[in-house]
Design a protein around this nucleic acid. Structure first.
Lengths: 206, 206
DNA sequence: CGAGGGAATTTTACGAGTAAAACACATGTT
DNA sequence: AACATGTGTTTTACTCGTAAAATTCCCTCG
């Protein structure tokens, strides 16, 4: 979207929360080559400054990172929803189809729940709709009559294969502001962080 | 949460989409000092591998970055919702209160919409609830009777001030997997990316 | 001054997700 | 074999957010 979509962010944040912060006040934030000082280049910087003015005693450092992650995610999702809506799909629906496509084989509703990180009820509803639209098919299991097996129809597969390149092309264009090494660094740092977050499920006490 | 919360991620992704990717197959993903190769340290790496197996011709690079941003955001939000729920607040509600707290002055509903990145209708509903709970107060404008001015009550201010340190402490603990320089780098890279995303509203065609 | 145009906010109708309960079935136990 | 227990999936009741329409009010212009 960013052009097509109406422009409503579902789960944003950053703004209200407090997510922004400052990496040490000395840690040069500008990582890029010859870029502006990025005083308040983005919304997060502004928010952090506000918090610091009100609560000078708090270390707002983490906000710089987490606030930006949240905001980037929100904007990216909004942007990438456009090609999906054009195809008449919501993101969660595409995620479901994508899971089937990338694993290459049938999945049960339960497996879709895990692959998709959504609730069982949500998966049930989506499957119902996607089945009606002819994008997926279900088949009962011979052994265990509780379980079902879901697979993509040809139409479903084609739809995913048609959208995916668009998504990747858009993502590539957005990331092009970063040098290739920058992209690698970013991926690496995020992988570390994600490793901790996914690590022992819920080990980090909130 | 990550321990308290039920465990339902609202707006996740990564899994189904395709967000993951690989920074060049040579770009060492491990950015940290002496860490494991991170072969499939996280979910995103697994997903990317699946996509590459199915569509070897596509450049899945951007997925490594964007997939991780999305997944990190989802997990962070889930984790940080715990202290909020304990206080009986949803994240959007806290965002609204936070906007009032950090700006330090009254805001109109319209301003809250902008600060909070949510729809007008949503703000209206939240204000209604928060007012009933005695966390905010409204006052009509003398000049223009269409506008209202919203301010935090003492209870509202205290609530925000009580929660914020918890949030920051949690964020600090999560980010502690990264060295301080790593955090700075991450903040800087994300700032660059965010700059582009926020830049000219919707300039990047999807 | 009275109408038109526009802005701020709220209301309405509805779609989508969640938690918890309900189902349907399989399996280990005695 | 009958049952308690546990798992896979769906159903139910409800909440929340959205889009679009409706309200209320300001301001300018003829």
């Amino acid at each position: 979207m960013t052009a097509t979509n109406g422009g409503h962010t579902p789960a944003d944040d950053t703004a209200g929360t407090g997510h922004a912060g400052r990496p040490a006040n000395g840690t040069r934030a500008g990582t890029a080559p010859g870029h502006a000082p990025a005083a308040d280049r983005d919304t997060v910087a502004v928010v952090v400054r506000q918090w610091r003015a009100v609560h000078p005693e708090l270390d707002t450092g983490p906000m710089e990172v987490i606030g930006r992650i949240n905001r980037c995610a929100a904007l990216l999702q909004q942007a990438e929803d456009a090609p999906l809506r054009r195809a008449g799909l919501s993101r969660p629906e595409f995620d479901l189809l994508g899971a089937l496509r990338r694993t290459g084989h049938e999945l049960t509703p339960g497996e879709l729940v895990r692959e998709t990180f959504s609730s069982g009820a949500a998966v049930t509803k989506r499957l119902k709709q996607l089945t009606e639209r002819g994008l997926v098919e279900r088949r009962g299991d011979a052994r265990d009559r509780r379980v079902a097996h879901v697979r993509l129809t040809d139409a479903g597969r084609d739809l995913v294969d048609g959208i995916l390149p668009e998504q990747l092309a858009y993502e590539t264009s957005v990331l092009s502001v970063l040098a290739p090494e920058g992209q690698g660094e970013l991926a690496g740092l995020l992988a570390e962080l994600l490793g901790r977050l996914e690590g022992r499920t819920g080990a980090v006490r909130a």
